[in-house]
């Protein structure tokens, strides 16, 4: 989880990702950030997030993103 937070803060240093709840809806993360996030997750966690999973619910908070990564890993 910390690794994920570290990746996120690298993208947007001024945002406290631990508590933030609606990164997408508030426009903190836009499509360019999401794409860079997905490619970093792929290289760091070796999990490819398919396009259909790129929806606001999964990216609105760090925790939701982390659950997505673990879910995709087990499936």
């Amino acid at each position: 989880m910390e690794k994920l937070i570290r990746i996120l803060t690298e993208l947007h240093p001024d945002v406290d990702f631990a508590t933030a709840q609606d990164l997408i809806d508030d426009g903190v993360l836009d499509s360019l950030d999401i794409v860079s996030l997905v490619s970093q997750i792929d290289s760091e966690f070796d999990v490819t997030i398919p396009a259909e999973e790129i929806v606001p619910e999964n990216f609105n908070s760090a925790k939701a993103l982390f659950d997505l990564i673990t879910r995709l890993d087990e499936e």
């Binding site: 499509s31 360019l32 794409v35 860079s36 490619s39 970093q40 290289s43």
Partner: peptide, 10 residues
């Protein structure tokens, strides 16, 4: 990492 992911996005 950051530069790589940014290029992919671009």
């Amino acid at each position: 990492r950051v530069a790589a992911s940014k290029t992919v996005a671009y």
